[in-house]
Design a protein around this nucleic acid. Structure first.
Length: 458
RNA sequence: GGCUCGGUGGCAGAGUGGUGAUGCAGGGGACUGCAAAUCCCCGUACGUCGGUUCAAUUCCGGCCCGAGCCUCCA
């Protein structure tokens, strides 16, 4: 298996530190609002990676945090006049709902900042003791100058960062590039007691502390969106490495590319932020998931109506092959083909893996013997399970209707029966009229050897 | 300005130093009462200008265009 490591800028063979226990940490959401489709990409991508790793190794410890201490959360809570816990509980639950709809399996760990204050404080104390951090005016700052490797992950020149040309430098900072590990909280804001007074953790320290607590000093894989490379991951790396006496923090850094909306960056100022739950009102979660896996995870992905419609048609084809062989029990000993797994093993090449899936579907459509059908069907289902798709009942997929006020199943059955009568009487004008009527209402009729069937085209 | 990463057929999107994935759309055929689904066949695709090479879409360099990051945004 090969993975592209941001730290080296190359694909590298993936060799876990301990093959008995692979560890992966992915940066999760700050829960102050609903997840948008860009937030969903890393969740889906690293879900596929976790599935692949679980197939390869006996134990995978996958942690994805929920950040529940943050200034934006404070702002949202103040606006509603509630405790921050009200806000974070609401949006953490929404996040879970959205991910479940996208077929993202729960992670092994889901640490929260509010549950790790002692660990965070302990790590900051150790950084101060080792002179990698200093307290100043109720803040604690990480000293970038104390870590010569700073900037290596994001390929940035440390001197420039120390100079901080673009940044307004707080007076208590020794160097412009120093960043906050702990900051004071005024009485009206949430705060926690610490050796430096009542305050709250800075943005980056949480992930370092929680990864340490759950996965150890050195983790195998650290993932997140490409925008996190700097400063978030650069800072995490600095903190953790220094807190651990120089031990490597993450052996492989993986970053997914950004999502654009109709070729534009998704941003609140442009007003093109698309929430996962909005999309799910008009499209099956599985299609959203597949759309996110259509491109390679490191490439930018443009989100638009056509991309989603494309994903639905792909699933129509794949589920079509499964539906046509619904009477065949999958072989129990057949697994995803080597070519499919090899594609994923090559830095999670989902487009190439998908191509193998379509080859399987074609072979399954052509298969004549029961043995071939049973084998190919099992292979297709198993391959689908690695990508987290194709596990639903094909009949459910094709009857899935997202159009409001569509025809009831009873009415469809009645019209199909009427049409069958007309056909039997060779009254084709009438049977075609019924078919056209159903089509106009979003139902497509298909006559097959097994009888007439239908599917929703909305 | 600095640092990343891209520009592949109508669209999406892999990949490769020499036999041009895959899906959708499109054309032809088989099947069908007609369709749909399925199967078969069909595309002078690799931003641009140079260089290296027997051979470059694939390697190197310039240029043009696009995306992202440059201190709390996945």
């Amino acid at each position: 298996m090969q993975l592209h490591n941001t730290a080296s800028g190359r694909k590298e063979p993936f060799v876990p530190q301990n093959p008995e226990r692979v560890t992966m940490y992915v940066c999760g959401p700050t829960v102050y609002s609903y997840a948008h489709i860009g937030n969903a990409r890393p969740a889906v991508v690293f879900d596929v990676l976790a599935r692949l790793l679980r197939r390869r190794y006996p134990r995978v410890d996958y942690a994805r945090n929920i950040t529940d201490i943050d200034d934006k959360i404070n702002a949202a809570a103040a606006k509603e006049g509630v405790e921050i816990g009200v806000i974070t509980a609401r949006f953490a639950a929404a996040y879970h709902e959205d991910l479940a709809a996208l077929g993202v399996a729960p992670t092994d760990f889901e640490p929260r900042v509010t549950e790790h204050l002692p660990q965070i404080i302990s790590m900051i104390e150790r950084l101060i003791a080792s002179k990698h951090a200093y307290a100043a005016e109720a803040h604690v700052l990480f000293s970038v100058a104390s870590y010569p490797d700073y900037g290596q992950l994001s390929k940035r020149d440390p001197r420039e960062l120390l100079a901080g040309a673009r940044v307004e430098v707080a007076p208590y900072k020794k160097d412009a590039g120093d960043f906050v590990l702990w900051k004071p909280s005024p009485p009206e804001l949430p705060g926690w007691d610490s050796p430096w007074g009542r305050g709250r953790p800075g943005w980056h320290i949480e992930c370092s502390a929680m990864a340490e607590a759950l996965l150890g000093d050195t983790i195998d894989i650290h993932g997140g969106g490409h925008d996190l490379v700097f400063p978030h991951h650069e800072n995490e790396r600095a903190q953790s490495t220094c807190a651990h006496g120089g031990a490597v923090f993450s052996r492989y850094w993986l970053h997914n590319g950004f999502l654009t909306m109709d070729s534009e960056k998704m941003s609140k100022s442009i007003g093109n932020v698309l929430l996962v739950r909005e999309i799910l009102k008009h499209a099956p979660g599985e299609a959203v998931r597949l759309a996110l896996l259509t491109g390679h995870y490191r490439q930018p992905l443009d989100w638009n109506d056509e991309a989603l419609a494309d994903a639905r048609r792909k699933l129509d084809r794949l589920y079509g092959a499964l539906r046509d062989t619904a009477d065949v029990a999958p072989a129990t000993d057949a697994v995803a083909p080597d070519a499919f797994l090899a594609a994923l093993d090559d830095d999670l090449n989902t487009p190439a893996a998908l191509a193998e899936l379509f080859e399987l579907a074609r072979a399954l459509n052509k298969a004549e013997s029961a043995d071939d059908k049973a084998r190919l069907r099992a292979q297709l289902l198993d391959a689908g399970s690695v990508l987290g798709i194709l596990q639903a009942d094909p009949a459910a997929w094709f009857s899935h209707s997202t159009a409001a006020g569509s025809v009831s199943n009873e009415e469809i059955d009645r019209l199909v029966a009427q049409r069958a009568e007309a056909k039997k009487a060779r009254n084709f004008a009438e049977s075609d009229r019924i078919r056209d009527e159903l089509k106009a209402r979003g139902i497509l009729i298909e006559d097959s050897a097994q009888g007439t069937r239908w599917r929703s085209i909305n």
